[in-house]
C-alpha cells in the first residue's frame, strides 16, 4: 500500500484560456481504490484524461505506474484499463464481438474464451452475448463497457463514472467487483457523481470547479465536515434558542443544528460516551429527551457540508 500508483503535483489544464483543472495534487497508493467525486463539469474527466495520457497537462507533473503518461510504451498501456464516460461500443457488433475487439486491441491471446466468459458473467451479459449492441439497454451497454475494460486484466483501472445510469442493485455489484479487484492487488481510480459511493473508497478526492478541495479517507472526510460523531435528539418541548446556545458551550459539543422545533443534531467528540452526558444535560434543564441515537451522516451531507465550508472560507 505504500507504493504510489499515481502521483500528481500541481496539475493544470486550460481550455480556451479558462482553467478546467488547476493545482490538483494527490497520490493514489497501489492496490487502493481512489474515488474522485465532484459534480458534472468539475474537471473529473479532464483529470482522468491527463492521467491516461489522452490530454497533456498545461502545467504540473504526473507519474502513473512510475512513468509520465506521455512516455507510455505499448507494454505500459497494456497495464492500464480505461473506461470512458461515454460508451465506446460498435452498435452493429454483438456484445461478444465488442468484447472480443476490446481483448484484441490489447493483444490478448486468441484462446481467450475463459476470460470472455468470466467478464460476461461478471456483468451478467452471458444471456445477451449474441445480441447486437444496438438491441440492448443503456444499462447493459455500460456493463459491457466495463467488461471491455476488465477483459485484459489491467493493473491500474481508470473508470470514468462507471456506475452512472445503472440501477442501485447492479451498482452495488459493480462496487463489489471493484473491491474484489482491489483485493487482487489492482489499483482503481474511479470518478463518480454519486457521493454515497465514497464509502467504498480508500481515499476520496473532492473536486469542485476544477479545484481539489480535499483528499482524505471517508472517515477523515466526516471528521472534516462535522469534527466528530453525530447524535440526533428529539424532545417533547420546544427547543429554545437559549437552550441551543447553552448546549454549544459544552466542551464535548462540536456543533448543534436545529432541524425543527423538537429535533436537533449535535456533533460530539465521541458518541459512545457523549450520549449519556447529553441525556443528563437535558434532564438537568427539565427537558426530557424522547429520542436520542448516534447517526452516520450520508456522504451527500458530508459533501454539502464541506462545500459550504469551502465556500464560506473563500
Amino acid at each position: 500500500m505504500n507504493e504510489m500508483a499515481i502521483r500528481t503535483r500541481g496539475l493544470r489544464k486550460q481550455y480556451k484560456k479558462e482553467d478546467a483543472v488547476r493545482d490538483v495534487t494527490f497520490d493514489v497508493a497501489a492496490g487502493s481504490i481512489f474515488g474522485f467525486i465532484g459534480p458534472s463539469g468539475s474537471g473529473k474527466t479532464t483529470t482522468i484524461r491527463m492521467l491516461t495520457g489522452i490530454e497533456k497537462p498545461d502545467d504540473g507533473e504526473i507519474s502513473v505506474l512510475g512513468q509520465p503518461p506521455a512516455k507510455f510504451d505499448q507494454r505500459m498501456r497494456g497495464r492500464i484499463g480505461y473506461m470512458p464516460q461515454n460508451f465506446v461500443l460498435y452498435p452493429d457488433l454483438t456484445v461478444r464481438e465488442n468484447l472480443n475487439f476490446a481483448a484484441s486491441i490489447y493483444g490478448m491471446n486468441l484462446r481467450r474464451s475463459k476470460e470472455m466468459k468470466t467478464a460476461l458473467e461478471l456483468v451478467e451479459l452471458v444471456e445477451h452475448q449474441h445480441k447486437p449492441v444496438n438491441q440492448i439497454s443503456g444499462g447493459m451497454q455500460r456493463r459491457l463497457s466495463l467488461a471491455a475494460t476488465l477483459i485484459h486484466s489491467p493493473t491500474l483501472f481508470f473508470l470514468d463514472e462507471p456506475t452512472t445510469g445503472i440501477d442501485p442493485v447492479l451498482r452495488q455489484k459493480f462496487w463489489q467487483r471493484f473491491k474484489e479487484l482491489q483485493a487482487d492487488g489492482r489499483t482503481l481510480f474511479i470518478t463518480t457523481q454519486y457521493v454515497s459511493e465514497a464509502a467504498y473508497c480508500d481515499q476520496v478526492g473532492l473536486l469542485i470547479a476544477g479545484r481539489l478541495l480535499t483528499v482524505d479517507s471517508p472517515e477523515g472526510l466526516r471528521m472534516q465536515a462535522y469534527g466528530g460523531d453525530m447524535i440526533r435528539a428529539e424532545t417533547a418541548q420546544h427547543i429554545s434558542d437559549g437552550l441551543i446556545l447553552d448546549l454549544q458551550e459544552e466542551t464535548y459539543v462540536r456543533s448543534v443544528m436545529r432541524r425543527d422545533p423538537h429535533r436537533i443534531e449535535i456533533g460530539v467528540e465521541e458518541a459512545g460516551t457523549d450520549i449519556a452526558r447529553l441525556i443528563k444535560w437535558f434532564e438537568a434543564r427539565s427537558t426530557a429527551l424522547t429520542f436520542v441515537e448516534e447517526y452516520v451522516p450520508s456522504f451527500d451531507d458530508i459533501f454539502v457540508s464541506l462545500v459550504k465550508r469551502h465556500r464560506a472560507g473563500e
Binding site: 491516461t52 505499448q74 507494454r75 498501456r77 465506446v88 486491441i105
Partner: peptide
C-alpha cells in the same frame, strides 16, 4: 464520433 480514438490512445494499439 464514437470516442474510440480516445480509447485507442490509451490502448496499446498504434
Amino acid at each position: 464520433l464514437l470516442g474510440a480514438l480516445r480509447l485507442f490512445q490509451v490502448a496499446p494499439v498504434s
